[in-house]
Amino acid sequence: MTSLPLESNSHELPLSLERQRQFEEIRTEISRRLVLREVSSSALEGSGCTCHAWDAIALPTESHYVPVFLSIIEQQEHVGSISPDTHILVETTTGNAGAAVAWLARKLGYEVIIFMPEDMPDARIEDVRKHLPETGCAELRLTPAKRYVEGMVEVFRQFLARHKKGYQGKKLAILNHSRRSESVEAIEDVISALLARNDSFTPFDTAIVALGNGTTASGIARALRKANSETRIIGVEPMEAPWIFVQKFGEAEFLERYGPIREDHNHQLLGSGGWGVKFPNFDLALIDDIIPLQQDAWQTKQRQLQGDGLAVGNTSAACLAVVDLLAKTSTAGTHFFTVMYDPITKY
């Protein structure tokens, strides 16, 4: 995704004491809500394996993106690139990133414009809307249905081309988290903090992560491998849109393992399977293997989790389904890591 670059001064600017306090309050709230919880299942118990999940649902807006955007905004303010008085934040989303940006914009006094496919679940659209600032420019622009990330990016680029000189008297601050190294670093810091708080745990042998724009998966992989260089990183994608699998292993390998790729690429593992869009922060070398998952597999797991009182969203259920799948053939004592990205109420 291309964007107009944020301006950057050559030196850091000190933030006011009040501004520092605002950022520190949000960091404290995030830190207080960092949770690593044990997840059980018959497959894990039967194989003698264990699993712990980063419960990102506990974070503000029930989204793992809050620490990512906090890091981006704070760093950009430090170098004098943006401020609430001069800039409007702009970002694209399939739901979770947009809610996080909207919430932070309200907290930090920014105006904001968010682009989102119009055929996302109503609950996700409403989730972004309810967190938007109450004053000033606070727009949620819905992009054409059935074109997912690719269509959203096209509309986003058209908007930027029309407003190169700004919008409503302010400059546009294109956050573009999928193209920023700060995004990967923020996730790496979060996972490192979780590991430090739970240093009595045995190291994680295998991590199961959803493959979207690569910032979360890459940050998790880096943090876990600092703690245990042998940790295997297994990606999860929708069978309908195995975009990262094709980039890493090729279409011929997919055909051999799973058969022909569907042409429409429509799926419900939101935040992953962004067919046709390449993300520069996706370090494919960090991923050991990728498991494309059929819809009925993760839906079955999701229903089971609901019965156990764990109402996680589609992508989280897919990751936990793969944990069960791998546990059945893993050595007893294998310790799995995964993420509960969001709740089922966002679907």
Rank of each mutant, 00 (worst) to 15 (best):
E237K: 08
T206V: 15
V190S: 03
R21N: 13
S10P: 00
I234K: 03
K301G: 13
G46W: 01
G271C: 04
A193R: 10
L36I: 05
E185I: 00
R222D: 02
F156H: 12
R147P: 08
L104I: 09
L255Q: 13
A100I: 07
C319Y: 06
A193F: 00
L175T: 00
G46Y: 02
F23V: 12
S16T: 13
I233G: 03
H267R: 08
D189F: 05
A97L: 08
G212N: 04
R27E: 12
L36S: 07
I113M: 11
I234A: 09
G333A: 04
E253S: 11
L284Q: 08
S316T: 08
W54R: 15
A43Q: 14
A161T: 14
L293T: 13
I57W: 01
R106N: 10
K226C: 06
I261G: 07
N198L: 03
T300E: 13
T2Y: 08
D289P: 07
R179V: 15
G235N: 06
E126M: 02
K165G: 10
E25G: 00
K164N: 03
H267W: 08
L160G: 08
H131Y: 09
L172N: 03
R32T: 11
T331L: 10
F337W: 12
T28V: 12
F282G: 08
H335L: 01
Q306A: 06
E126A: 05
E91C: 01
S16N: 04
Q295G: 09
S183R: 09
A210D: 07
I261F: 02
I234R: 06
N314H: 14
R21Q: 14
Q294L: 07
I57V: 10
R257E: 08
G80A: 05
K248P: 01
V79L: 02
S183A: 14
E24K: 15
E25M: 01
F337Q: 12
S83P: 07
T331K: 11
E237T: 10
S16P: 04
Y347I: 09
Q20M: 12
P292L: 05
V149D: 04
